[in-house]
Amino acid sequence: MLSFVHVVPRAAHVLPSKESLDFPGERRLRQRVEFNAVMVGKGLPNKCFVIYQRANEVGVSRLGIVASKRVMPTAVARNLAKRTVREAFRQLFPVECALDVVVRVRRPVRREAVAECRESLTQLFQAVQA
C-alpha cells in the first residue's frame, strides 16, 4: 500500500511575508523624462553612490536606479546593487515624503561589501531627508 506524504518546502518557513517586501510600481521612476528631470541638479556623492533628488507633485516618494554596464559588467553585480538600493530605500524613506530620488551606482557592489554600501546609502538618504 502506497501512502503519500505532503512535504512543505523549507524555504516557505524562512521567507518573510510578501507584504513586507512589496515595492509597488507607483514608487518607481520608469521613464527617461522622469530620470532626466531629477538628474538636472548637482548630486550628493560618496565613494559608492551619487544621489539626485527633486520634489514631486505625486505625493509619494519614488526611486530610480542607474546601474550601468560600464561600471558593473556582469548582470549579477548590477542586480545585487539594485536590490541593495531598493531595500535601503524601502526601509529608510517614508512613503509620504514626496521626493523623487535617483541613485547612480559609482562602483560595483560586491557581496562581501553589501553592509558597507548599505551604511553609505543610509548616510546619503538621511542627508537627503534633512
Rank of each mutant, 00 (worst) to 15 (best):
R30H: 15
Q31V: 13
Q31N: 12
R32M: 07
V33A: 15
E34C: 08
E34G: 05
F35D: 01
N36I: 03
A37Y: 01
A37W: 03
V38W: 00
M39C: 09
V40C: 08
G41Y: 06
G41I: 05
G41H: 10
K42R: 15
G43D: 08
G43K: 10
G43M: 09
L44R: 15
L44D: 07
P45E: 10
P45I: 11
P45V: 10
K47H: 15
K47F: 13
K47M: 11
K47L: 12
F49P: 06
F49Y: 14
F49T: 05
V50Q: 08
V50T: 15
V50P: 03
V50E: 11
I51R: 04
I51M: 08
Y52Q: 01
Q53H: 12
A55F: 00
A55S: 12
N56W: 10
N56G: 10
E57A: 15
V58W: 02
G59P: 02
G59H: 02
G59S: 05
G59W: 05
G59V: 00
V60N: 04
S61Q: 03
S61E: 03
R62I: 05
L63E: 02
L63Q: 01
G64F: 01
G64A: 09
G64I: 04
I65M: 15
V66R: 04
A67D: 06
S68I: 10
S68V: 08
S68H: 06
K69I: 03
K69L: 10
K69R: 14
R70K: 15
V71G: 02
V71P: 04
V71K: 02
V71Q: 04
M72T: 07
T74N: 09
A75V: 04
A75K: 03
A75E: 06
V76T: 14
V76Y: 10
V76H: 08
A77V: 06
A77Y: 04
A77I: 00
R78M: 07
R78T: 13
N79I: 09
N79K: 02
N79H: 13
L80P: 04
L80K: 10
A81E: 04
A81W: 04
A81N: 04
K82Y: 04
R83E: 07
T84A: 10
T84G: 12
V85E: 07
V85A: 04
V85C: 06
V85D: 07
E87L: 05
E87Q: 11
E87D: 12
A88I: 01
A88Q: 09
F89G: 07
F89D: 05
F89L: 03
R90P: 00
R90N: 04
Q91C: 06
Q91W: 00
Q91S: 07
L92V: 00
F93H: 01
F93L: 12
F93G: 00
P94F: 11
P94E: 12
P94K: 13
P94V: 11
E96K: 10
C97Q: 13
A98T: 07
A98C: 13
L99E: 14
L99W: 14
V101P: 11
V103K: 10
V103Q: 07
R104T: 06
R104H: 13
R104K: 14
R104V: 15
R106H: 11
R107H: 02
R107E: 09
P108M: 11
V109E: 02
